[in-house]
Computed example of a mutant assay.
Amino acid sequence: MRITEGYYQVKMNIRQYMQSRQAGRVKKVLLGQNLNDGWLAKVLIYFLLAVIAFLYLQPLFYMMSTMVKSVSDLIDPVVQWIPRKLHGQNLADAWRGLHYPEAFTNTLVIALSCSLLQVISCAITGYALARLRFPGKAAAFILIIITFMVPPQITIIPMYTIFGKLGWLNTPLVFIIPAMFAQGLRGALFIIIFRQFFLTQPKALEEAAKMDGASAYRLFFRIMLPLARPAIIVVFLFSFIWYWNMYYEPSMFLNKEFLPLSLRLNLMQQELMGNSAINFNAGVGKDPISEGPKMAAAFLIILPPLIIYTFTQRWFSEGIERTGLVE
């Protein structure tokens, strides 16, 4: 009798041990050793990331869906994301309405030239503020920070007056010349990025180069500037995107003789609104006649930066980390 009871007791203990061990494995799989190791935490994190990604990508999906819809699909409330038939006329209308080849060339000239000039000028200025010693260095850095904090709307009138006296209005010189002297669009921010990057470099490199007889210019262009590739990539991409998308400054300094894509889009929208007022009474809400071409035009404008970012994403992410912007 006692043997039988002992057998059943051992059997129950083994069963409880196996159940507890199995429960521990399930708990470990679901929750993990740490809070973020288990499947539940991963599912929650992926769900949140998917929601955030959808919120960011939804405007792009809406743009791409609307630009291939016909007027009948835009009017039909049943058609939401996928059109019944792809309609390519909106892209053709947007291409003609934007004068895309001419406007693309104008925008590319401004964005590319100003970005390259800002990389060089801001790198030189940032290196001087980080490594060189000269009178008024602290005051110069404070002034740079002040220019970063001042809104452009405050300085737009004196800048317009100065550019008008110099004869630069309605030409790309209003953007190229300031970028040449590290005072272009967001120039103060780029100087700060380069300054912070050069401050992190070891002084032993400079000391060794100076012992070999390298001058300050050779030290910068042959040693320090190649090391600053992460900062160069970040500054170039930021500068290029901001110059590509700017609207306020071109609307003040440029006219119909030299228009970038942002101003062409505004003119095209005005023309479409006038045509829609004649041809269609849309009432309150979106205008189905002009909605497709406008979305197609917006897509044509953002397509080049998207392509550039697609091929430079890895270097851009590395540059963000190494320049300390994530902090």
Rank of each mutant, 00 (worst) to 15 (best):
F280Y: 15
T107P: 10
Q22N: 14
L254V: 01
L219T: 11
A297D: 02
F299A: 15
F198Q: 02
K210D: 01
N36G: 04
T66H: 10
I124Y: 09
W242I: 05
I233V: 14
Y247L: 10
M246E: 15
F299Q: 09
A228R: 01
Q118Y: 01
W81Y: 06
Q196S: 13
S115A: 06
T323D: 02
M1F: 08
Q196D: 08
E207C: 03
L143T: 08
S215T: 15
V68M: 02
I14R: 12
N90E: 08
I302G: 03
M295W: 02
V235C: 08
P305Q: 07
P59S: 07
Y309W: 13
F280L: 13
T200I: 04
S251D: 09
I110R: 07
T200S: 14
M252Y: 07
R15K: 05
N255G: 13
P59R: 05
F181P: 04
Y127E: 00
F236R: 02
I289A: 14
F141V: 00
T105Q: 15
M149C: 14
V284P: 00
L30F: 14
N90R: 05
V235F: 06
V26A: 15
V71W: 11
M211W: 05
A208L: 05
L173H: 05
D76H: 03
I232R: 06
I223W: 06
A139I: 06
K210R: 10
T310P: 08
K210W: 06
I157V: 13
F141M: 07
N279M: 12
W81L: 13
V284L: 10
N255T: 14
I14Y: 09
T105H: 15
L259A: 12
T310K: 13
V71D: 08
P83W: 08
L116S: 04
I289L: 15
I289K: 11
P178I: 00
